[in-house]
Simulated scan of single mutants.
Amino acid sequence: MSYCRQVTLSRVRPAIVPAILIFALFSCTVPANFQYPQGKPFVFKTTIRVEGNIKGDEKQDLVQKLENQLDDSLQAKTVTSFYKPFYFVAKKLSYTPVYDSAYLGRSIVFMNALLNANGYYAPVIQDTVIYETVHKGKIKKTGKHKGFSKEQQRVIIHFTVKPGKQLVFDSVGFSLNTPELQQIAITSKDQSFIKVGKPYSRLVLASEINRLVDSFRNNGYFRFSKEDLYVEHDTVFSALIDPSLDPIEQAELLEKLKQKKENPTVTVVLRQRPVRDSSHLKKYFIGNVTVFPDLPIGEDTVAVHTDTTLINQIKFISRTNKFKLPFLANNIYLY
């Protein structure tokens, strides 16, 4: 009887394998074929860090939204590549834009607009720009790109965003001049997208306007549009500058303003604009309904014999007996 022992050889210690994989997956390099700007600073990396008391998932979602607001020339876009001879994985810059400080200012404006639209009325955005020179003074001596400069003027940009306190909805009201529209809005209030205590968002306000327009159209106001509505925010700030304001009323408003700074809330009222087109307030009703149950697409109906049948005020024009017309009529709910 013979015995043999299995021996396994490894050139890499198992303990360092995870470190190698992490480095390979998250490392970033510039294009090897000298596609980066020669002699000019270029965007190598841009990061955004959000500070404040925000939940993990919400913070990550906010970071992603802020990244989408960056100017294209500040976005260091990467692709995954395999490098020989060991075929390790690394992220390579697919686009290396030349750095311009003007793009920095534009990005901050866009990010501020996003934060304002999501209820952060006093955000603070700080930027840090780091210039880093790699392979300074080195020249490619061999190969296809012989004579090219290997020097890279990398720019790394860090944004620190402090959103501050987020506005929440305090209350919502409807003030529509047309009595029937006001009644529809009040009746469907439980379906409102605006929830008291939830974060303020312009997207929520836009969704609420669209919901009201759909409700009005489903009740006969076919031509009513979102341009016929607008949202009015609370008027505490504007009322303070009223010269005719009573001192006692002014003191009450100042107290409300102080409370809003500590726990910012917003009251919104959806109002109806002055009538510009009377047809938008005209109620439409269903007229004649005609059904063609077996009409082929593109057929000339003049040369074909058809039968006309009236069931439950619905006219059916058919050319065959393929369908049971009473069954179709009982499943049409237009009247």
Score class of each variant (00 low, 15 high):
residue 212 L to A: 11
residue 214 D to R: 15
residue 215 S to K: 15
residue 216 F to E: 05
residue 217 R to P: 03
residue 217 R to M: 00
residue 217 R to I: 00
residue 218 N to T: 10
residue 218 N to Q: 15
residue 219 N to P: 05
residue 223 R to S: 11
residue 223 R to M: 00
residue 225 S to D: 14
residue 225 S to I: 04
residue 228 D to K: 02
residue 228 D to F: 02
residue 229 L to Q: 01
residue 229 L to S: 14
residue 229 L to Y: 05
residue 233 H to K: 15
residue 233 H to D: 12
residue 234 D to C: 03
residue 235 T to W: 09
residue 235 T to C: 06
residue 235 T to Q: 11
residue 235 T to K: 03
residue 237 F to P: 01
residue 238 S to Q: 09
residue 238 S to H: 04
residue 239 A to Y: 10
residue 239 A to G: 11
residue 240 L to V: 05
residue 240 L to A: 12
residue 242 D to W: 06
residue 242 D to R: 02
residue 243 P to I: 07
residue 243 P to T: 06
residue 243 P to S: 12
residue 245 L to E: 04
residue 245 L to R: 13
residue 246 D to L: 00
residue 246 D to T: 06
residue 247 P to G: 05
residue 248 I to C: 04
residue 248 I to P: 06
residue 249 E to P: 04
residue 251 A to D: 08
residue 252 E to C: 02
residue 253 L to A: 11
residue 253 L to T: 01
residue 253 L to S: 13
residue 255 E to R: 12
residue 257 L to Q: 10
residue 258 K to Q: 06
residue 258 K to T: 14
residue 258 K to P: 00
residue 260 K to C: 12
residue 261 K to I: 15
residue 261 K to F: 13
residue 262 E to S: 09
residue 268 V to K: 01
residue 268 V to R: 05
residue 268 V to D: 03
residue 268 V to Q: 01
residue 268 V to P: 01
residue 270 L to A: 03
residue 270 L to G: 03
residue 270 L to D: 04
residue 271 R to G: 03
residue 271 R to H: 07
residue 272 Q to H: 03
residue 274 P to G: 02
residue 275 V to Y: 09
residue 276 R to E: 14
residue 276 R to W: 12
residue 278 S to I: 03
residue 279 S to E: 15
residue 279 S to N: 13
residue 280 H to A: 09
residue 281 L to M: 01
residue 282 K to V: 09
residue 282 K to S: 09
residue 282 K to I: 03
residue 283 K to W: 00
residue 284 Y to D: 08
residue 285 F to Q: 10
residue 286 I to W: 00
residue 286 I to V: 15
residue 286 I to L: 13
residue 287 G to Q: 08
residue 288 N to G: 14
residue 288 N to F: 07
residue 289 V to F: 07
residue 291 V to T: 02
residue 292 F to G: 08
residue 294 D to Q: 00
residue 296 P to V: 01
residue 297 I to V: 07
residue 297 I to N: 07
residue 298 G to H: 03
residue 299 E to G: 11
residue 302 V to R: 14
residue 303 A to N: 13
residue 304 V to P: 13
residue 304 V to S: 13
residue 307 D to N: 14
residue 308 T to V: 15
residue 309 T to V: 14
residue 309 T to S: 08
residue 310 L to Q: 12
residue 311 I to D: 01
residue 312 N to S: 11
residue 315 K to E: 11
residue 315 K to D: 04
residue 315 K to R: 11
residue 317 I to C: 06
residue 318 S to M: 09
residue 318 S to P: 00
residue 319 R to L: 01
residue 322 K to R: 06
residue 322 K to Y: 00
residue 322 K to M: 10
residue 323 F to Q: 08
residue 323 F to M: 10
residue 324 K to S: 11
residue 324 K to P: 00
residue 326 P to F: 13
residue 330 N to S: 15
